[in-house]
Design a protein around this nucleic acid. Sequence first.
DNA 1: CAAACTGTATACCGTTCGGTATAATGCAAG
DNA 2: CTTGCATTATACCGAACGGTATACAGTTTG
Lengths: 194, 194
Amino acid sequence: MTEQTNNKERILQCALKLFSKKGYDGTSTMDIVNTAQVTKPTMYHYFGSKEGLLSEILEQNYTALSAKLKEAANLPQDISLTFYRIARVYFDGARENLDFFRFRMGLMLRTGEDAAYLCARKYIEEEYAIIKDFFDNATKQAGNLAGKESLCTITLIGVLNAAVSAYLYLEDEAMLSDETIYKLRQQFLHGIYS
Amino acid sequence: MTEQTNNKERILQCALKLFSKKGYDGTSTMDIVNTAQVTKPTMYHYFGSKEGLLSEILEQNYTALSAKLKEAANLPQDISLTFYRIARVYFDGARENLDFFRFRMGLMLRTGEDAAYLCARKYIEEEYAIIKDFFDNATKQAGNLAGKESLCTITLIGVLNAAVSAYLYLEDEAMLSDETIYKLRQQFLHGIYS
DNA sequence: CAAACTGTATACCGTTCGGTATAATGCAAG
DNA sequence: CTTGCATTATACCGAACGGTATACAGTTTG
């Protein structure tokens, strides 16, 4: 009765889904193995611990996200286009990998010592660093943003996270449309009256 | 050995501090009563359950926050001033009640079924409703925002939350200064280049 | 074919969880 | 001065927690 369609992958997916819905601390290992239809030793064979499982989930998903984000943010000469590309990374990510983005959102604004946040922290910091880098480079070429790089980073990520969060809450795919991005970009670049 | 400086209040404060640091699920009732230097029956006498304790914490703190927010947002004829006033409510709140704002931030972008989020959901929705109301009224008087009320609400809250979150992360009070608010407002109203 | 290794199952570990039965204390009102 | 109530302490509950010892099946390798 071995190998009934890759237990490891199924554990990863079920755990992510449960973490995203009930939180890391709110999800028990029994929850996970029951949902994934494996036994506990199977899970511990692959991941060693509950936290090991969390680490692998974060590593997999954040690695993919960071790569896309870096690619989207490598055109410092065009802030407008880059806004679109970054927004698309987040919005596509949210649509295609709803569970991960739900989980990620719950970790995003944290600052405490909860286990899941501590594991995710380095990835969150990397995300900020990628956007900050972009604005730093954009300033070198444009100049009129000098001194605002940090605040731009905070507000850009804040606005996009808020929009993704609204999508997850409303579950309305219109929230992820190009039209939404255009409106958000217009507002970000030129203010709410524009 | 009765009444050694109000056990109930001390339980509330210690629980909030622990929730903000380790999350609701990550905090045990033993944690709480040990920190507050009471026994479990004392806690259960006052609050009935762990969730009852959470409810009272949320009710107390969100009631105060919502009242301040409503007051700050009752000048629909002046968006610029209102931005300042709303930002001050959040920023002062974060400085004066760090634990609650830390906790609140962790709940803010959630969408799942975790216990703490479900308890807090109605308050979060009320917060959005207050800001949304403001923009709806502002549109009636100004008009040039028509159709953007929802997106303005999302981005305003998103930007301010991101700033508060940056303060909690950096622990730098300069983040909460009037100067920061002016920059954020300028950006919100007139774009990043302005 | 035998040894070794990967993966899975049964059954169980000690600990901690949220919560409570019972009783003693201090204090206010009759 | 005692009855009644609000508050606190001791001691404990069953259930669920994260994690594991042991064994065995299936495959790979010598």
